[in-house]
């Protein structure tokens, strides 16, 4: 076994928690049942690593097999690192006919044309997602397997999720992705976070949506207690309704942060100096919580956020993004703010 392969295996075992290691090894299916049983998972990590290295050497496993193991582990536990999402634009006429084999072939050809030393591994997961693992090398060095980039793409959907990509390599990946999916352009979708599934659900609208309506639901109408209307309760109910319109009903995607970069002017009728100032009042606001959409919904229904909810907050769900740059509109509509297109 080569030194780099050994190094990679050691790093992989070190990073994987012991309890997951056992399940992943079983799934990997490169070790015989006897060999699997010979690994004692109660021992310290470095002992397990040594045992695995010897077993892999016995079986004559190469880097290819070990990357398979890593990919399996990542697919099982995708909630690590930060996933960035991208959106493919302007599909060509035959974009819908791209299937897995064609995409695989095209992507590999395009990326290899741009970069010589690159190792690509593509695997289709059960939920229609195509997982791509790319280990980058440079013109003269061999692919670095210790820092691979992961790409998840749902065929026939315009979204791509990427983890661990340096800005230098970004154009190369973007170009090969657009070409192989038969699109013309790709843009940053301004949505990122550690939970891949939450980001996917948000972009692909896979959550319980509620639509704005002025009428209360027919069921609620029937249950109304006659002509005497409790004003408080009504206000509370309307707050709740508006909150769920803006931030969804039931379980919402677990988004953990949202960032707003404000570059608007400071306005306060009682402070002339600041209002007359030409430069914008620059600030950055970051919301974080274990589930910000749920927090916002609670804020709105508790009255901490005034209803109707400002479009700034509700566009997290409507537009499916969590990074915004806010600038002032043209001076004519000075009191309004809008989201600048990125």
């Amino acid at each position: 076994m080569e030194k780099s392969t050994k190094c990679f295996l050691q790093q992989l075992v070190r990073r994987t928690p012991t309890r997951m290691l056992k399940a992943t090894l079983e799934k990997w299916d490169r070790l015989t049942p006897h060999q699997r049983q010979s690994v004692d998972f109660t021992l310290p990590k470095w002992v397990i690593t040594q045992t695995l290295v010897t077993i892999c050497e016995e079986n004559g496993l190469t880097m290819k097999h070990i990357t398979e193991l890593e990919m399996m582990h990542v697919i099982e536990n995708p909630n690590q690192g930060t996933w960035y999402s991208f959106q493919l634009l302007d599909p060509e006429d035959d974009a819908h006919s791209v299937e897995l084999m064609l995409f695989k072939e095209q992507f590999k050809t395009h990326l290899r044309e741009l970069m010589r030393n690159v190792s690509i591994k593509i695997k289709k997961h059960t939920d229609e997602a195509v997982w791509i693992r790319i280990a980058w090398g440079s013109g003269f060095s061999r692919p670095n397997h210790l820092k691979p980039t992961y790409v998840v793409h749902y065929l026939q959907s315009p979204y791509v999720f990427v983890r661990n990509l340096t800005s230098k390599l970004k154009p190369l990946l973007m170009q090969s992705l657009t070409l192989s999916t038969r699109h013309q352009a790709i843009k940053d979708a301004n949505l990122s976070g550690p939970k891949l599934m939450a980001i996917r659900d948000l972009l692909m609208k896979q959550y319980q949506q509620s639509f704005p309506t002025n009428d209360a639901s027919p069921l609620a109408k029937e249950n109304q207690p006659g002509p005497i209307v409790n004003e408080q309760a009504e206000a509370r109910a309307s707050r709740r309704r508006m909150a769920s319109e803006a931030f969804g009903k039931g379980a919402v995607p677990q988004l953990q942060s949202a960032v707003y970069k404000l570059e608007t002017k400071y306005r306060d009728p009682s402070n002339r100096t600041m209002t007359e100032r030409d430069e914008p009042f620059r600030c950055v606001v970051k919301y974080s919580s274990s589930n910000i959409l749920e927090s916002f919904r609670h804020c709105a229904s508790a009255g901490i956020a005034s209803t109707p909810v400002t479009p700034l907050l509700s566009s997290i769900l409507l537009k499916g993004r969590n990074y915004f740059v806010i600038t002032d509109n043209a001076p004519a509509a000075a009191s309004q703010t809008r989201q600048a297109d990125l």
Binding site: N271, T273, M274, R277, F281, R282, C283, V285, C299
Partner: peptide, 26 residues
């Protein structure tokens, strides 16, 4: 930190010079 469920943290970062402008105007 806002007392909602789950707790919401709001980080508000203001550019130093802009903050000072507001302060001096007051």
């Amino acid at each position: 930190t806002l007392p909602v469920e789950p707790p919401l943290q709001v980080t508000y970062v203001v550019e130093g010079n802009d903050a000072w402008d507001l302060w001096s105007s007051l």
